[in-house]
Amino acid sequence: MRVKLKIGENEKKFINRVNELTGDNVYRCYQCGRCSASCPMAQEMDLLPNQIIRKVQMGQEEDIIGSKTLTLCASCFACQGRCPKGIDIAAVCEAIRHLLEPKGKDFWGPDDVQPELAKELPQQVLVAVYKKFAK
């Protein structure tokens, strides 16, 4: 399928908001892919970290909404630590999650956690995750 690439008012609003929240400019990314190569969760992701950035560059908010990548990002900062342009990719994911919240795109609540897993995990982790991905 051919995607119509449009960078109009809405797209620019989205891109600018991500830039504002991260204090950076996503167009600085030249798509070398080192973030994706570094990411410990990349093999589980449907969009690689560099592709998330690319989709922001292209203003394709809709494609990002449904992506598992946002919930899989553990904010370990391996990406940012190795990015040759020093872009904080984890912060970009965080910013997108923040922007998607009002749109009812929440990801994870207590019901989504298997009881056995909930028993094993430290409470702090669960609270942090619920907070991060709260409904």
Binding site: R2, L5, L47, M58
Partner: peptide, 15 residues
């Protein structure tokens, strides 16, 4: 303009 972004694997069309 019909092109592609091979990095995301999308065929794109630009007006």
């Amino acid at each position: 303009v019909w092109g592609v972004d091979t990095l995301t694997g999308q065929k794109v069309e630009v007006e």
